[in-house]
Design a protein around this nucleic acid. Structure first.
Lengths: 235, 235, 235, 235
DNA sequence: AATGAATGAGACTTCATTCAT
DNA sequence: GATGAATGAAGTCTCATTCAT
C-alpha cells in the first residue's frame, strides 16, 4: 500500500507535468503558430528544463499529436451525448451543430489549433494515425451520417431530395470549415464583418438547417407531398 | 534607345526571375507547408543562388505575401465579372458560389495555400496589409453583400427573414471554409468520405442556396414549380 | 546466519547483475562500436534503469575496462596450459599460435573488442593499468619469448639467425594484428578474398612458422624432407 | 579569362580551405580517437566557424571518408610503382612489403587512422563505398596476388606448396595488421618490447618472406648458402 | 545582376550523471 | 538494492542573411 501510494504519487506527478507541458504548448501554438514555436519556448512556458521535456515527449510532433488526441477525445464523447438526447433526425442534426457552436464559443483556441493542424499537418502525417482518431469523433463512423439523413427523410423532417451519402458529409465539412476559419481569423473578422463571430457561426448553422429541412407544408400542403416528390427527381 | 532597350530587357528579365522564384516557392509551400520550406529550398527550386534571391525579395514573408497578392488579384476580378452577368440577387449569389466551385476544381493548390495563410499567418500579420487586399476580393467591400441580400428579399428570390448584415457574410465564410478544408485534406477526404471532393463542395453550395432561397409561395406553389425546375438546370 | 545468508544471496545477486551489464555492453560494443554505445543503451540491454547501473560501475570506461580484464584473464591462463604441453621450442610456439587460431574461431567478438580497444583506447588510457594486465597474457613476461627463441636455436628447431630479442615479439604482434583485422573486417573480408577468414588466419600462421623454422639440414635431409613437406601441405 | 582567373582563385581557395579542415581533423582524430573528436574541435583547429565547415562537408562521416580516400589514393599509386620496378615475383613482393615499411616510418599517423577506421567503421559503412576504394589499392584487384604467387612458384623464387588463392592474401593481411597494431600502440610497444617499432615491423616482413621463399636447392645448397646469407644482409 | 564565401544565432536532441526516496 | 525524476553540458546541424567581388 505504501508502494501503491508512492506509485500513485509518482504517477499523478507525471500526469501533471505532462499536462503542464501540453498546456504551455497549446497556448504558444495558438499565439504564434505551431511551426513558429520552439522547444525552448515550450520548456520555458512549462517551467522545466529542455532535457526534462524529453522525458515526457520525444519531439514536437509528439506534443502536437497529443493535443490533437485530446481535442478529438473531448469532442467525440460530448457530441454523442448531445445527439442522443434529441428525437427526430433534424433535431439530432440541430443538436450536433448546436454542440459545435458551443464548442466554438467555449474553446476557440482548440478550434484554431485544429485549423492549423489540418492545413499544415494533414498532408504530412500518417493517414492511419489520423483516421484512427477521426473514427472516434463521428460516432459510428460516417455511416451514421447516411443513416441520419435517411431517417430524416423517412420521418419527414428533412428534404426528400437530399443524398444520404453526401449531404451530411458536405454540411459537416462546411460547418467545421466555417468554424475553423472564424476561429482562426478571430477578432479580425469581427472588425471586418462588424459582427461577433459566434453570431456569424450561428447564422451559418441556421442557413444550413434551413437548406436541409423539409419545406413547411404550405397550409394544405401536408397532404400534397407531391411537390416535394417532384424535387426528389433532381438528385 | 540602346539604354531603353537594355532597360526593357533587364526589366523583363527581372520579372521572369521574380516569377520563377514565386513559382518555386508556391510549389514548395504546397508540398511541405509554408513554415517548413527554407530559403535554401526555394533558391534551389528556382535554380538560383541564395544571395540572388535577396535581390528580389527581402525575406520569406515577402515571398508569401507576394503570392497572397497574386491569388487575391486573380480571384477578385473574375468573381466580379461572373456576378455582373447575373440578373436576380439569387442568381448573382449562385454565380458567385459557382465561381468558387470552379476555382476549387481548377487551382486547388492556391486554395490550399490560402488555407495555410489564414490559419498560420492571419494572426501575426499586419491587419492593414490584409484588409487592403481583401477589399479587392469582394467588390465594393462587404456592404455589397448587405445590398445583395436586401435586393434578394425585395425581388422575392431570397427568404424574407435573412439578416442583410449577417447572412451573406456567414455564407461566404462557410463556403470559403469548406473550400479550404476540402482542398487541404484533399485525397484524404475522398478516401474517407468516399466522394470526390468537388461533389462534396457543390452539395455544400446547393444546401446553402436552398437555405437562403425564398420558400415557394404557398398557395400557387404547385403551378410555380416550373421556375424551380428552371433553377434545377443550373446545378 | 540469517544475516550471512542474506549476504550470500545479495552477493551472488550482485555478481549476476554485474555480469548482465557486462554481457549487454559487450554485445552492443561489438555491434555498434564502443564509442557509439550510450549508457542508456547498455542499461536497456541489461534490463535495468540507468541509476541502477551506477551501483555497479561508475562510468562507461569502468565497464570497458572490466571487459578487457576478462578477456585477458581468460586468454592468459589457457595459452599457458597449451604451451606447457609442448616439447621443443618450435612446438611451443606452434601451440601458442594454434591456441590463437582457436580463440579466433571461438570468440571472434572478443577479438573484435580488443581490436577496438587497441586502436581507440590504448592511446588515452593509463599505461600502467594496461601493462599490469598484459603482463598476465604472456606468461613470464616478454622475456619468455626471448628464452623461447634461444631454446629453439639451441635445440635446432628454429633458424639460427633469429634475433631472440626481436623475432617472437614481431611474430606475436603480427599474429595478433592479423587476427584482429580479420575479426574486425569479418564477412567483408570473406567476400572480398573469397576465403573463410579462419583459413586465411591459419595460412598466416603457417607462413610465419615456416619463416622461423630451421631450414632442413642439407645433406641427408633430402629424403627426410619429403614426409615433412607432405605434412606441411595438409595444414 | 578574367572570369577564369576568378574561378581559379575561388577554386584554389576552396581546395585550400578543404585541406585545412582535413588536416585539422586528421591530427585530432589521431590524438583523441575519431569518435571523441567533436565538430567544434575540428572547426577550432581549422580556424573557421562551425557553419563554415558545413559548406565543405556535410557531416563528420564525410570528413572521415575524405581522409580514407586520400590515404587509399596515395598508397595505391606509389605501391604500384615500387612493384613495377622489381623483376622476380619474390622481388615484387619484397618491394611491396618494403614499401609498406617505409609508409610505416613516414606517416604512422595515417596508419593509425586506418586502424581506427577498420576497427570502428568497417562494420557500419557501406561495403560498396569501401570496396570501390580498396579496388584502387591493390592494382588489378586481388587476382594480382594470385598471379604473383603463381609466377613466383614458376620462376622458382617462392615455395611450390603455396596456395595462390590464399597465401598472399594472408600475408598482406598480416602485414597490414601488424603495421596498424604497431602504429596504434606506438611508443607503448617500444617501451614494452624494448625495440623501435620499425625494427619490429621489418622483422615481421623478414620472417614472412623467409616463410614464402623457396628453400635453397638441396644438392648444392651448402655452397649456395652464401647468396642466401647475402640476401640476409639486405635486411 | 549574380554569386561565392562566411557566419551569428539558434534549433533540436542526447547523454551521463545525481539525488531523494 | 533499485529507481523515478531532473538536469547541465554538450553536440550536431540548419538557416537567414551579409558582403565583397
Amino acid at each position: 500500500m505504501n508502494e501503491a501510494a508512492k506509485r500513485g504519487t509518482y504517477s499523478s506527478h507525471r500526469v501533471r507535468q505532462r499536462q503542464r507541458i501540453l498546456d504551455a504548448a497549446e497556448k504558444l501554438f495558438d499565439e504564434h503558430g505551431i511551426d513558429r514555436v520552439s522547444i525552448a519556448e515550450i520548456v520555458n512556458g512549462a517551467g522545466i528544463r529542455p532535457s526534462t521535456l524529453y522525458e515526457y515527449f520525444s519531439n514536437k510532433d509528439d506534443i502536437v499529436w497529443a493535443i490533437v488526441a485530446d481535442v478529438f477525445a473531448d469532442g467525440a464523447e460530448r457530441a454523442k451525448k448531445a445527439m442522443d438526447a434529441a428525437a427526430t433526425a433534424l433535431d439530432k442534426i440541430t443538436a450536433l451543430l448546436e454542440f459545435m457552436a458551443e464548442g466554438f464559443t467555449q474553446s476557440p483556441s482548440k478550434i484554431r489549433f485544429m485549423a492549423q493542424f489540418d492545413s499544415m499537418y494533414a498532408r504530412q502525417w500518417s493517414p492511419e494515425r489520423l483516421l484512427s482518431l477521426e473514427a472516434q469523433v463521428s460516432p459510428g463512423g460516417l455511416e451514421y451520417f447516411s443513416t441520419l439523413v435517411r431517417a430524416g427523410i423517412a420521418d419527414g423532417t428533412l428534404r426528400p431530395d437530399l443524398d444520404p451519402e453526401l449531404t451530411m458529409h458536405a454540411v459537416i465539412n462546411a460547418v467545421i470549415g466555417a468554424q475553423r476559419r472564424l476561429a482562426s481569423l478571430g477578432r479580425r473578422v469581427e472588425m471586418e464583418y462588424g459582427q461577433p463571430v459566434d453570431r456569424l457561426f450561428r447564422e451559418t448553422i441556421r442557413i444550413l438547417l434551413l437548406g436541409m429541412r423539409a419545406p413547411a407544408p404550405p397550409s394544405e400542403v401536408k397532404r400534397k407531398n407531391s411537390p416535394s416528390s417532384g424535387k426528389r427527381k433532381k438528385r
